[in-house]
């Protein structure tokens, strides 16, 4: 028997979309798998989602406290990666596309997910972007003059 944690949207559950961010996903869906079949599904809210800092560590704590052995992630920050590794959890990489919890678990059952061992994004990645699926690292724009109060400088 193995318990897999999946960062999920909303209140979590098999039919919910997977959330690409580990530390700041709204919920975790814990899926118990035995003999390559789903036995049990449990969803837990992620109270670290809005943390100022250390969300990855607190999220790892939730994952650990719910006895997960493995976790599937989209993006994984350095503190979360270190925390999950110190808990000796196996970390699988989800495909970089919108996907439901059920679909990603199916990929897992078909052995189509790759194991990863370290962070794949930097700290606070994806914050303040409304958390849509799918990566895309935009080219930052913005000109702006700034500090107009000191002009005509």
């Amino acid at each position: 028997m193995v318990i897999i944690a999946v960062p999920s949207n909303g209140n979590g559950g098999l039919n919910e979309q997977m959330n690409p961010r580990f530390g700041r996903c709204p919920s975790f869906t814990f899926v118990t798998v035995e003999n390559n079949e789903i036995k049990e599904v449990k969803a837990v809210p992620n109270h670290a989602a809005d943390a100022m800092g250390g969300a990855g560590i607190q999220a790892a704590q939730i994952v650990g406290n719910n006895s997960a052995n493995e976790v599937i992630v989209g993006s994984l920050g350095p503190n979360a990666a270190q925390s999950l590794s110190s808990l000796k959890l196996k970390i699988y990489q989800a495909p970089n596309q919108p996907i439901s919890v059920k679909e990603v678990i199916n990929l897992y059952l078909e052995h189509k997910l790759q194991l990863i061992t370290s962070a794949n994004v930097s700290s606070h990645y994806g914050m303040g972007r409304g958390g849509g699926m799918g990566g895309g690292r935009g080219m930052g724009g913005g000109r702006g003059m700034g500090r107009q109060n000191r002009s005509p400088f």
């Binding site: 800092g53 250390g54 560590i57 704590q61 650990g64 406290n65």
Partner: peptide, 24 residues
């Protein structure tokens, strides 16, 4: 210790020894 650590630098899973995450 983990409960009171403002930087969340101690990773604590119940009934386990806390793990310091030193970089935070």
């Amino acid at each position: 210790c983990a409960e009171n650590c403002i930087s969340h630098a101690l990773l604590y899973i119940k009934d386990a020894i806390p793990i310091p995450i030193l970089n935070v």
